[in-house]
Every structure is written in structure tokens, then in C-alpha cells.
Amino acid sequence: MLWIPISKSIYTLGDNVLVYRTNPKGISATVGSTNRSIDSYWITELLVEEQSKRDLLNQENFSFFLDQLAINYFRVRQMDKKIKLAEFVLSRALLNVYLENGVQIERLSSKKTKLVKHMLAGDYQKAIDLLSAWEGMK
């Protein structure tokens, strides 16, 4: 959320050059079972604050931010509903930081547009349903 916007060049490779191995005792496998899973939200909040200071609250970063919300939800999805609801409320406040800086919902993909509209309406269940099915999230 910070280094991509200030990069002069970014390249992608068409081939897989990284193989990810799952450790059944590692953080990826145990996510949601410890309070550390909530830290992802707090890091996101700090990144949005830094983006604001650096005038990086733009359309492209807003799209990345929405993907980060899916990652954050993935990390707390097995936790108590009160925790998930609290994260939803806090994430709505971060979403509004972007909107107050002029990002346009209409320029997002339809999936992301739906997510923003559900969040703005305070429709927790519809937003969670979308986040639960986010690309790459199981």
C-alpha cells in the first residue's frame, strides 16, 4: 500500500517463480485462532494513515485497500462475531477516509463496487458474504 505507488517501474512475470509450502503449525494455518490475527487490521489502519500523509489516497490504492479488507477478514473469520463486527465498523471508517479524498466507486470492478455499497449501507452480512468468497480466499 506504500511502496507500489512510489515505484518508478513495476514488472510482472508470466511464470510461477515461487512455490508456497504450508506449515500446519505456522501462522497461515493457525490464523484466526489467536488475537494476533486482529493485528492485520491495525497495520492496515497505519498504512492508510501513511498514505494520507503522502497524498496516496487515490483510486488505484483504494482498490488495493479493498483487497486488503478481504485478507483482514480471512484472518479473523473464525473469531467471535463481535470481533468481526468491530473490524467491519472500523474498516468502514477507513473506507470513508478514501471516499473523502475523492475516490470514485463507479471506477471499481462490480465486485468491489458491491462491497463498498454494502459497507456504506452498514450491511454486515452482505459485505461478509462478498469478502468470504473473495478471489484466493477460502
Score class of each variant (00 low, 15 high):
Thr34Leu: 12
Gln104Lys: 15
Leu47Glu: 13
Val48Tyr: 01
Leu131Pro: 01
Gln125Thr: 06
Val103Ala: 06
Asp67Val: 00
Leu57Pro: 12
Ala70Arg: 01
Ser33Asp: 14
Ala121Trp: 00
Asp80Gln: 09
Leu95Arg: 03
Thr44Val: 03
Ser40Trp: 03
Gln51Gly: 10
Phe65Leu: 09
Ser109Thr: 15
Met137Gln: 13
Gly102Met: 10
Thr44Glu: 08
Val89Trp: 12
Ala93Trp: 05
Val48Lys: 01
Arg75Phe: 13
Ser63Phe: 05
Val31Gln: 06
Pro5Cys: 02
His118Arg: 04
Lys82Glu: 13
Pro24Ser: 06
Asp80Thr: 03
Glu87Asp: 07
Val116Ala: 07
Leu108Lys: 02
Leu99Phe: 05
Leu85Trp: 15
Val89Ile: 15
Ile4Gln: 06
Thr22His: 08
Gln68His: 13
Ser91Val: 07
Met1His: 11
Thr30Pro: 00
Met119Asn: 06
Leu47Met: 13
Lys25Arg: 12
Val31Thr: 05
Asp15Ser: 12
Glu60Trp: 05
Glu135Asp: 14
Met119Ile: 13
Ser110Met: 10
Ile4Lys: 14
Leu94Ser: 06
Ile4Val: 11
Leu57Trp: 07
Asn61Glu: 10
Asp15Ala: 14
Asp15Trp: 04
Gly32Lys: 02
Leu47Val: 07
Val103Asp: 11
Thr12Tyr: 08
Asn35Tyr: 15
Ile83Gln: 03
Val97Leu: 12
Tyr124Phe: 15
Asp39Gln: 07
Asn35Ser: 14
Ser40Arg: 08
Lys114Trp: 09
Arg54Asp: 11
Phe64Tyr: 12
Tyr41Arg: 02
Asn58Thr: 09
Gly122Thr: 08
Leu57Asp: 08
Asn101Ser: 12
Ser7Phe: 03
Lys82Arg: 12
Pro5Leu: 03
Arg75Leu: 15
Leu130Ala: 06
Ser9Asn: 10
Ser109Met: 03
Lys82His: 08
Leu120Asp: 06
Arg36Phe: 15
Phe64Met: 11
Arg54Glu: 14
Ala29Asp: 10
Arg77Thr: 04
Asn23Val: 13
Gly136Lys: 02
Gln104Gly: 01
Glu50Gln: 12
Asp15Met: 11
Val116Asn: 07
Ala70Asn: 05
